[in-house]
Amino acid sequence: MKNSELEKHLSEILEAYVSDKKKLNGLNEETNFITDLEINSAHLVDVILDVEDKFNICIENEEMEQMINVGKSLEIIQAKLND
């Protein structure tokens, strides 16, 4: 799957947990889920579950640990899809 397509899907997932939707406009690899998008940390596990369901993959704990920004999340999803 193309990175742009992955980013679009990830953005759709994140949208449910971001209060200020305008923050999703400037999404880039460095965008941090907590400090930039202000996603409540208690909802981060929901993001991970949504990613698993959307891409039909299983995120291991060591991978989940790193999934706090867009770039790292896309990298992990892409690697899982290529497995």
Partner: peptide
């Protein structure tokens, strides 16, 4: 650094 690892 910031991480998501509640199991730890």
């Amino acid at each position: 650094s910031m991480k998501l690892n509640p199991l730890q």
